[in-house]
Structures are given as structure tokens and as C-alpha cells.
């Protein structure tokens, strides 16, 4: 889908039309069992394109796959990766796996709280940065503690100062990539 949809906090009919077309092309279940297997994938697709999962998109998926939107809401609240609010301009994954913990990721989480006023899932007041704290391991432990910006840029071996510098650098940068990580 096109660039520009990424930061939208509201959803327009054109977006939903594109989503509908995508569902019809790529999410075509052969039976009701397969329809259910496709729900999470369809939601992941939406989050990948929109950066979050708007209610209208959930409804479209529910209608397309023949399940209730309540069930979809149950999934969105269970799986930690899903966001039901639009993210900020930039997106940061903060690894809080064991290696990063041993390397001091707790200090970075404290810094987010004290200096930026945000915690898990939060967005800074200026709307520039959303943080997701990852309980698992990002798999790049030799650079621990590490963060990943906008699903592509890693900054590792962090202490509080370099962490702040990295955030400053990324938020000074206006635009973001058009996609949002895994689909």
C-alpha cells in the first residue's frame, strides 16, 4: 500500500477499500477452519500497513472471514504485539531480554519513565515516539542492551546517555518508513 497511510490516526474509505481488495486476493479460506487460521495473519497485515489495528479494519476482517468482531477484540487484547491506538511518528522496540537486562536495560526503562513520561506501549506527549518493551530477546545480544527503531535500525551497547542521543537523532528525523514490521 501507499506511503502516507502510515501515520493516519483515522481511517478513510479508500484505505478500507484497499484492505478489502487485499483480503479478497490473499486471504481466501477454503473452509471455516482455514478462515479461523487466517484471522491473526489478517490482523498482522493490517498492523503492518496501518501501524495499528483500527476498529473499522477489525470489522472488515470479521466480515470477510465470517467471525465476530468481539472475537477479534479478544485477540487484539491478548497478543501483546497489537496496538489499537495509532502509534507515534517513530517506533522503538526496547529489548528487555535477559542479556539486555544483564547489560542494563532496566536503566533505560527508568529513563523512559523519568525523562519521557512513558512506559510499555506509551507514546511521548509530542507524538514523536512510541515504545514497545520486548519481553523476549531481539536476537542480537552481543549488542545488548539494544533498541530497534522503525523496524530496521538497531542501536546497541547503550547506556543512558547514548540512549537519549539515539532517541534525539531518530525523532529529529521527520519521516518514517511506510511499513510496520512483520506482516
Amino acid at each position: 500500500m501507499t506511503r502516507g497511510m502510515a501515520h493516519k490516526s483515522t481511517v478513510e474509505q479508500a484505505d478500507l477499500d484497499r484492505l478489502q481488495a487485499h483480503l479478497e486476493e490473499h486471504f481466501q479460506p477454503r473452509d471455516h477452519e482455514e478462515a479461523q487460521e487466517l484471522i491473526l495473519g489478517a490482523l498482522q497485515h493490517v498492523q503492518h500497513e496501518f501501524g495499528w489495528v483500527p476498529l473499522e479494519a477489525s470489522q472488515a476482517i470479521a466480515d470477510h472471514l465470517g467471525v465476530s468482531v468481539n472475537r477479534i477484540y479478544g485477540l487484539l487484547t491478548f497478543y501483546a504485539d497489537f496496538r489499537t491506538e495509532p502509534p507515534g511518528e517513530h517506533f522503538m522496540l526496547l529489548c528487555h531480554g535477559a542479556a539486555c537486562f544483564v547489560g542494563g536495560s532496566q536503566k533505560l526503562i527508568h529513563e523512559l519513565r523519568d525523562n519521557y513520561g512513558i512506559g510499555q506501549g506509551g507514546t511521548t506527549a509530542d507524538g514523536k515516539l512510541t515504545v514497545q518493551i520486548v519481553n523476549g530477546c531481539l536476537g542480537v545480544c552481543d549488542l545488548a542492551p539494544i533498541v530497534q527503531f522503525d523496524h530496521e535500525k538497531y542501536v546497541g551497547n547503550l547506556d543512558v546517555d547514548s540512549f537519549n542521543a539515539a532517541i534525539e537523532e531518530i525523532t529529529a528525523n521527520g519521516s518514517q518508513r511506510e511499513d510496520h514490521g512483520a506482516d
Binding site: H96, Q106, R113, I118, G119, Q120, G121, G122, I133, N135
Partner: peptide, 10 residues
């Protein structure tokens, strides 16, 4: 104290 991951949500 160490922040619980969940408790500081926005």
C-alpha cells in the same frame, strides 16, 4: 523500585 512492565502503560 523496578518498574513492572505492565504498570507504567500510557
Amino acid at each position: 523500585f523496578v518498574i513492572p512492565l505492565a504498570a507504567v502503560g500510557a
